[in-house]
């Protein structure tokens, strides 16, 4: 009998399971918004790729060589400052070293707004090539800064930046508006934009000025923006927008509005369902027996 009833239990829970999976699938993109700690997906790197382009694709989104600190530290002189072995271990798996409590790694993490360096999924050969490349850069003449972020200029216009973000104004070179993929607080609407990319609320705190060079440097965004670069003026406007207080934190009012609307919507659906099926037979014996007591 035990097997029989457990089988029955299993069957009964199937619809619930099914709904749970559906709900999880529906919610997954939203949960991902906050998951900045999640390591990037490892991807294939061709061994034939030379170190310079490897640096360009893998590192330049956060690092410069002699161009100043971005999201991550400036790597000029890093081969001299750090033990070669340490460097190799670090590039292969930064989260592991942070988890191990490596003192240098912990310090760097604290220095850079607690934005951890992701594991890039590089092979040992790639890492070796990268270190050689860094050594060459340090040994050679001071290289020109690669993809230096726009200097924090004060001349950007917040309003113009907002229009660029929402698509009210178009980018000069035809780049898609940020809102197509990203949401951000302070531009109205219920969630402020698309769900494909992460939410950009408070992104300035995390990435600093690099937030506007990200489209050119990050692996996922680069293919879209490679032919549709942002002009310096646009970058300045966007930067001003991202620095403005309205997008550095979500207003509590909006959150409460969202919550309230959700509750209201659920109640409305419940009411409609109840109205349509209000004459549904919901039990004969229970009310009959209940009347007695």
């Amino acid at each position: 009998m035990a097997t029989r009833t457990s089988a029955a239990n299993w069957k009964r829970s199937l619809p619930v399971l099914f709904l749970t999976v559906l709900a999880a699938m529906a919610l997954a993109p939203r949960l991902a918004i906050g998951a900045s700690e999640a390591p990037l997906q490892p991807f294939e790197v061709s061994p034939a790729q030379d170190a310079a382009s490897l640096f360009q694709t893998q590192c330049s989104a956060c690092h410069t060589i002699g161009g100043g600190d971005g999201v991550g530290p400036d790597l000029e002189g890093v081969t001299a400052a750090r033990d070669r072995d340490w460097l190799a271990r670090w590039i292969i798996d930064p989260p592991a070293m942070i988890a191990d409590g490596d003192p240098i790694a912990t310090e760097i993490l604290a220095d850079f707004n607690n934005v951890p360096m992701p594991a890039l999924g590089l092979s040992e050969a790639d890492v070796e090539a990268l270190i050689v490349y860094l050594e060459e850069q340090d040994g050679g003449a001071a290289a020109a800064p690669t993809a230096a972020p726009v200097a924090a200029t004060g001349d950007g216009d917040v309003e113009a930046g907002r229009n660029l973000f929402t698509g009210a104004a178009t980018f000069e070179n035809g780049a898609p508006s940020c809102r197509a993929c990203h949401s951000v607080a302070g531009i109205g609407g219920f969630d402020g934009g698309g769900n494909l990319g992460p939410d950009l609320t408070a992104s300035y705190d995390k990435l600093g000025d690099a937030v506007v060079t990200w489209p050119e440097t990050s692996v996922t965004m680069r293919p879209i923006f490679v032919d549709k670069t942002l002009t310096d003026a646009e970058k300045a406007d966007l930067l001003a927008f991202f620095r403005s207080t309205e997008v550095t934190e979500r207003s509590a009012v909006v959150i409460w509005q969202l919550a309230g609307l959700s509750v209201l919507g659920a109640a409305l659906i419940g009411l409609v369902t109840h109205l349509i099926w209000r004459r549904r037979l919901s039990g004969v014996r229970a009310p009959m027996v209940g009347r007695r007591s």
Partner: peptide, 17 residues
């Protein structure tokens, strides 16, 4: 998909052993 006039299990009874 939502036959509204069905007796519930309680109107029959929950079978037991």
């Amino acid at each position: 998909f939502h036959n509204p006039n069905l007796p519930t299990l309680d109107d029959y009874y929950e079978p037991w052993t």
